[in-house]
Amino acid sequence: MYDAPTTPVEPGVPEAVYPWRDAWPRNRLGLAPLGDGTGSSAHHPRFRQPRLGTALRSGLVETTEDFGSQGSLPSHPALLDWLAQWFVQSGWDVKALHRLILTSETYRQQSAAAAALRERDPNNELLARGPSFRLSAEMIRDNALAASGLLDRRVGGPSVYPYQPAGLWDELSDKDWRYQYPELTPENRYRRSLYTYRKRSAIHPAQLIFDAPDNSVCSVRRPRSNTPLQALVLLNDPQYSEAAAALATALSDGRRTPTEQLRAGFLRLTGQSPTEAELALLLDYYSTSGNLAGTLHAVMNTSDFYTLR
């Protein structure tokens, strides 16, 4: 029981797994010498792995959080080993590692795939096609802000309080000392989602709906669910209609034809040009409704906006 401790317990590694030297600190720093290029490389993939996970949807070991006996086996053990050695020889250069991965032919493949290939390898474990996955909660919001030109790129500073449905925290407690969600101020409206205040017991609902963990415990890998509530956020959270309106205003400079506006807007939102068929649909809606912001808002609700291709 916590208030009646008995034997003191300290961190350590079982002798049979790895004999610990007394000089090493009993924490992760103590593990670092294993990565000096002389020992086994088995430990550094662990650090590298989430990097690759970010880029390729899942790492070469699917269970990014578990390299132990309960985890999945690596899909490409030789590649994993090679990357680990490369990483150590680069002097643990994380940026260089990102560059290596993101400029590789494997990463730059098309994510489109024939039905037969999808059937053989539904989870793309063999990396015969490019990665494709829904962006994270933070990325989706940041993408909308960046595409519309609203994103505030300042680095650092205290957390901020962007749009959140009114009264949410007040429903949890009516004590006068409760922590209240501060009023929205213009200077913190469009900061990167990284800076959104995280109340541990009540994180921002739009982030929660897109699978952000609640920060109570360490989380290495997030689920990527697909739910109607996510559709409702993209449709009705004022963050997105505002971004669409800002983008529409930016494109309405009097110099662009409707087709040019839509091409440019689609490109900004999805990173690619619309196909002729997509353009026809967009033009049709825009000319009937006269609502450029509404048209662009619809694009924010299509898979090319929130999916990495």
Binding site: N226, V299, T302
Partner: peptide, 30 residues
Amino acid sequence: RGQLDLIRELNEQQDDRWNDPEIQARIAQY
């Protein structure tokens, strides 16, 4: 409703291009 129709039609176009089962699921969620 008009916007949702446009979203569905765009998603169907994207499904043709990417052949990604995730897109069909998205259409259903909308």
